[in-house]
């Protein structure tokens, strides 16, 4: 319930109007949205119980490896609607397969739709969505130089909260089902990050400083 309370209000996209090229405009609008979402996510991470007790190095490391996963939980969550064929990045930024392909994000479309279908099939609750976001963010495989005790405590606390929640609903097995969706999330995030790096390097799509820093962090 603490995580639900601290869940930020959804952001709206600011339509880019710097170019006549439709798919570039979409991409620039998306990059601007992601950059702002990233900023909000960094603020939100500090609200995860135990996060602020980690060292600065640990906090940076978790965010650098988990930010795209955390953001994609939100995109997949919003994209579950009906049998929708769109990726809902924001209420006013919904991209179908053709638009994603034109923007160079065909692979991202496939994977995140897959993820959305999986969340939809298990009828993921808002509580589970925020838990998954927090867990994705704290489940880094990066090697951490500091003592791992506080991170372990943070992860244990989240797992316990998830177990408690599922047990209170009388469906304890859902905790495991939720965790089993994490590999697909990580794979989708890796593909998405790679797609944006490629668009930046090969196609010279301008990317905001914070977003670029995070894309190049690993």
């Amino acid at each position: 319930s603490h995580l639900l309370l601290t869940e930020p209000a959804p952001l709206a996209a600011n339509q880019d109007d710097s170019t006549d090229d439709g798919s570039l405009r979409t991409l620039l609008t998306l990059c601007d949205l992601l950059n702002r979402e990233l900023l909000v996510l960094i603020g939100w991470a500090k609200q995860i119980p135990g996060f602020s007790e980690l060292s600065l190095v640990e906090q940076m490391s978790l965010l650098q490896s988990g930010w795209m996963e955390a953001l994609l939980v939100g995109v997949a969550w919003r994209s579950q609607g009906r049998a929708g064929e769109e990726l809902v990045f924001a209420g006013n930024l919904r991209l179908d397969e053709a638009q994603c392909r034109a923007a160079g994000l065909a692979g991202v479309y496939q994977e995140v739709r897959h993820l959305a279908a999986r969340y939809r099939a298990m009828k993921m609750s808002p509580e589970e969505a925020v838990m998954l976001k927090a867990m994705a963010l704290t489940n880094s495989d990066a090697e951490l130089p500091d003592s791992p005790d506080s991170l372990q405590r943070l992860q244990d606390g989240l797992q316990e909260a998830l177990q408690d929640y599922e047990c209170s609903r009388g469906e304890p097995h859902r905790a495991g089902r939720l965790l089993m969706s994490l590999p697909l999330l990580r794979q989708s995030a890796a593909r998405a990050a790679e797609a944006f790096r490629r668009l930046h390097r090969q196609h010279r799509v301008p990317i905001h400083k914070l977003l670029l820093e995070m894309l190049n962090a690993k």
């Binding site: 960094i42 603020g43 500090k46 600065l56 190095v57 906090q59 940076m60 914070l210 820093e213």
Partner: peptide
Amino acid sequence: QEKHKILHKLLQNGN
């Protein structure tokens, strides 16, 4: 950390 200036700053300054 020099390479990750913005993130470093955001975390340190309490946003």
